[in-house]
Amino acid sequence: TTLTVNTQTYTFTSEEEAREFARRYGAKTIRKTNGTWEVHG
């Protein structure tokens, strides 16, 4: 199964959650914005 996250942004309140998600789905960018963490595919 392949998950494609081209134009979607996922927002997390903790860096740990964001990094775990990025690691699991191979997202390329993690960015902190206004106190939340954004993961970009």
Rank of each mutant, 00 (worst) to 15 (best):
A22L: 05
T4W: 04
W37P: 00
T33L: 11
E15W: 11
R31F: 10
Q8L: 12
N34K: 04
E15V: 05
L3F: 05
E38C: 10
N34W: 00
W37G: 00
E17A: 08
K32C: 15
T13W: 08
Y25T: 14
T4R: 08
T9A: 07
E20S: 05
T7C: 15
K32V: 09
R19W: 11
E16Q: 09
T36I: 14
F21T: 01
T13K: 09
G26M: 04
Y10I: 07
R23L: 08
E16Y: 07
V39E: 01
T2E: 14
E17P: 00
K28C: 15
E16F: 07
K28E: 11
R23N: 09
E16M: 07
F12A: 00
E16W: 09
G26W: 03
S14Q: 03
R31D: 05
T9N: 08
G35P: 01
A27Y: 15
R23P: 01
T9V: 15
F12V: 00
T9I: 15
F21W: 07
F21M: 04
E15Y: 14
T13H: 08
I30M: 04
N6F: 07
T9Q: 06
T33P: 10
K32E: 09
E38T: 06
T11M: 07
R19C: 15
A22R: 01
T13F: 11
S14C: 08
E15Q: 04
S14I: 03
G41V: 15
K32Q: 11
T2I: 13
T29M: 14
W37N: 01
G41N: 08
V5P: 13
G35Q: 03
V39P: 00
W37K: 00
R24E: 08
T33C: 15
Y25A: 07
T36W: 07
I30R: 05
R23E: 14
H40G: 10
E15A: 05
A18W: 01
G26H: 10
T36F: 12
G35D: 08
N34F: 02
T9Y: 13
F21R: 01
T1Y: 05
A18L: 01
T11D: 02
R23Y: 06
T33K: 10
R31A: 09
R23Q: 11
T2Y: 04
T11I: 14
T11W: 10
E38L: 07
G26Y: 03
G41Y: 13
Y10W: 12
T29E: 10
Y25V: 14
G26A: 05
R19Y: 10
T36M: 14
E16I: 07
K28Q: 11
T2P: 11
E38N: 01
V5D: 12
E17N: 03
N6M: 12
K28F: 07
E15M: 05
V39K: 01
L3Q: 14
Q8N: 10
S14Y: 03
A18V: 00
